[in-house]
């Protein structure tokens, strides 16, 4: 696991709001430590925060400067396809977008995860069961075209959404190894292919 800071280490970096309450933060740390256990693939160390997760765990967002710093750092994690090919099969992409499974303690393996895109986004003309935590991506390819910068940005957003919005609600599908490169290529095709129901009525 990379970039893990232990909760213990975090005590050294108490956010300003807690400056007066070092004890409270110690209490919080002790509570979290005593309250969780490993079940199946969901190991207890999941409760330790990455630096940016911690910065984004307040009622209010961090300062603009802090957000920019996190975004610059997250941008460095993005790996673009080595073969330069961004698009797989949109039909497989659609299945991945619909599949919200993976990474819970009732899942057998940390691999074979879905993208869960429909949990948060409207995507296609025919699927009416979609969530609204993220913006609608209906007609994504049709409205944005497929210029290189658009394609690269979209890949980057799927790979690590935090590179463009430090405290985004969207998971880091590539960086956190939720999806494989191949799965992300299928999703790209789903978003951009003119024949995909995202773009075609």
């Amino acid at each position: 696991m990379k970039k893990i800071t232990t909760i213990a280490a975090l005590v050294l970096a108490i956010p300003a709001a807690w400056a007066a309450g070092e004890d409270s933060y110690a209490d919080f740390k002790a509570m979290m430590d005593a309250s969780f256990k490993t079940t199946g693939i969901a190991a207890k160390h999941r409760m330790y925060q990455l630096d940016f997760q911690k910065a984004c765990s307040q009622e209010k967002q961090p300062s603009k400067a802090e957000m920019a710093r996190i975004e610059a750092e997250q941008l460095k994690t993005i790996r673009y396809p080595a073969d330069g090919k961004y698009f797989g099969d949109w039909k497989q992409g659609e299945k991945i977008a619909l599949d919200g499974r993976g990474l819970t303690w009732t899942d057998k393996t940390p691999h074979n995860n879905g993208g869960g895109c429909y949990n948060c986004h409207q995507l296609s003309h025919h699927e009416i069961s979609y969530g609204t935590i993220g913006p609608s991506l209906l007609e994504y390819g049709k409205t944005r075209g497929n210029a290189e910068d658009v394609v690269k940005y979209t890949w980057g957003k799927i790979y690590n959404a935090k590179a463009f919005n430090a405290c985004s609600n969207m998971p880091r599908n590539g960086d956190a190894e939720i999806l494989t490169e191949q799965q992300m290529k299928h999703l790209m095709a789903f978003l951009f292919d003119p024949a995909s129901p995202v773009n075609k009525k």
């Binding site: 979290m32 009622e59 990474l103 956190a176």
Partner: peptide, 15 residues
């Protein structure tokens, strides 16, 4: 403590 937990992001999906 509950409020801190409510905003506490962790895990592979950062939720």
């Amino acid at each position: 403590l509950g409020k801190q937990t409510f905003y506490y992001r962790a895990g592979p999906m950062d939720f």
